[in-house]
Design a protein around this nucleic acid. Structure first.
Length: 420
DNA sequence: TCTGGGGTCCTAGGACCC
DNA sequence: TCTGGGGTCCTAGGACCC
């Protein structure tokens, strides 16, 4: 039986979120910035039309935006994350087989609905999502994930309905013949250049290439794309799996020059990573820490260093991991640099019921685990950061900038939208 | 002044084993 | 002159994604 996939993608997701509780933004150009107000990571259609580039540094486009009355937001991940949950929960009401692919995308399997009019069904889903969450979406339908991605792009650009069904092979060929190869899912700018050098310019040409040849030059990943373009599904819906690595890293609001401050920042990132770790019911068996200076300031002395440490036993105890991080930082840190960023990665993650009996530590871990449970509970009910470790510091004047953050409308009682 | 953060998968090559 | 063959596991690095 042939499969049927749909890709649901939220249009300009972060910008659309900002609009939901602020209708005055409806026709205005809106832009959302990355952490630390560094780069532009979301644009409303009006902002795109002004030629504001994706991923570009904010400060380079400040003038252009000011001139055109663009409304600028710092990122508000608590809010976007919650809006994403609402969209995904709504989708689940329509379709049982679904994969949440990213914060703003989900793949669906529609095989079971093949006797319905899938176009109508997609339009209904889209309408309801908008009605229930305020978020506009696009829906592409096709026999493979890779083709569904194309269908979705097409739906966004070329349709009134926001829905496009690309199951027909002739239609596929026609659309692919006009699609530059680097716009395919899985083909980066780099691979695009390499493909073009080999005479492959369009998605259609890639589809009709020899899979073995593509494999030699672009590995299994490339070969799979060829098959997917031919309508042969190689990528199925994926289960939600616990993360294998958990990272937490951030640039500082201003350069750090004291080890004490770096320790504080690192402690905060560590606490965050450990929270995620416990949230997915896992333990880590090691930690890696890195610190670096600002690579864009080549006039300043540059420094990057990283180090890894294995734990004696799998753990999710923040206090224990904080100590390990501090140890590593002590090895890495050199005086005399202006540091811009540091980060921590939790490694070799295993389920938390994975239990290696350890004669001497059993007692301690039980106590620590209980403490962490209480800590998480308090922070979940009273708000993040209500209770924290002393190592995380209080002043935190290295913290990132987010001057234009909107209220956390849906996750903070005192930031609810008001209606007058 | 100012340039994000968090992931996954695949491959090649080395270590090690019989 | 000449020094096996095959397998597994692990890791680092490179590629991609949103």
């Amino acid at each position: 039986m042939t499969k049927i996939f749909a890709l649901v993608d939220c249009n300009n997701f972060y910008a659309s979120c900002e609009r939901v509780f602020n209708p005055a933004l409806q026709k205005r150009p809106v832009v959302v910035l990355s952490n630390n107000d560094g780069c532009i990571i979301a644009r409303s259609n009006e902002a795109k039309a002004l030629g504001i580039p994706m991923g570009a540094p904010y400060y380079q486009n400040k003038e252009l935006m000011k001139k055109n009355g663009v409304v600028v937001f710092s990122s508000n991940y608590q809010f976007y994350g919650d809006m994403s949950l609402r969209v995904m929960d709504s989708l689940r009401l329509f379709v049982p087989d679904m994969e949440v692919y990213s914060i703003d995308e989900a793949f669906l399997r529609l095989d079971g609905f093949a006797h319905h009019d899938l176009f109508d069904m997609a339009v209904t889903i889209r309408t309801k999502l908008h009605q229930w969450t305020g978020i506009p979406t696009s829906l592409g339908i096709a026999p493979t994930k890779t083709l569904a991605k194309i269908a979705n792009r097409y739906a966004k650009k070329n349709t009134q309905t926001g829905v496009f069904d690309m199951r027909d092979p002739q239609l596929q060929s026609h659309i692919m013949s006009n699609l530059p190869v680097e716009e395919l899912w899985g083909i980066s700018h780099r691979w695009g250049k390499k493909l073009r050098a080999l005479g492959i310019q369009t998605a259609l040409q890639l589809r009709d290439s020899d899979p073995k040849f593509i494999r030699r030059n672009f590995s299994l990943v490339g070969e799979r794309i060829v098959h997917e373009l031919r309508g042969l599904s190689c990528l199925d819906l994926e289960e939600v799996r616990p993360k294998k690595n958990i990272m937490s890293s951030k640039s500082f609001g201003k350069p750090i020059t004291e080890q004490q401050q770096m320790e504080e920042a690192l402690a905060n990132y560590t606490a965050r990573a450990c929270e995620k770790l416990r949230g997915q019911h896992s333990k880590a068996q090691g930690i890696s820490v890195f610190i670096k200076t600002n690579r864009f300031k080549q006039s300043e002395p540059q420094y990057y260093n990283a180090a890894t440490l294995g734990f004696e036993h799998p753990t999710s105890d923040t206090a224990y991991i904080l100590q390990a991080g501090k140890k590593l930082l002590n090895i890495l840190y050199r005086k005399g640099y202006r540091y811009k960023k540091c980060g921590i990665m939790l490694l070799d993650i295993v389920p938390d019921h994975y239990h290696q009996d350890h004669l001497f530590v059993a007692q301690d871990t039980a106590k620590a685990e209980h403490l962490m449970k209480v800590l998480d509970l308090v922070n979940q009910s009273m708000g993040p950061g209500t209770v924290f470790h002393a190592a995380q510091g209080i002043k935190r004047d290295w913290q990132m900038r987010n001057d234009n953050r909107s209220p956390r409308y849906t996750t903070k009682w005192n930031e609810l939208a008001r209606v007058f």
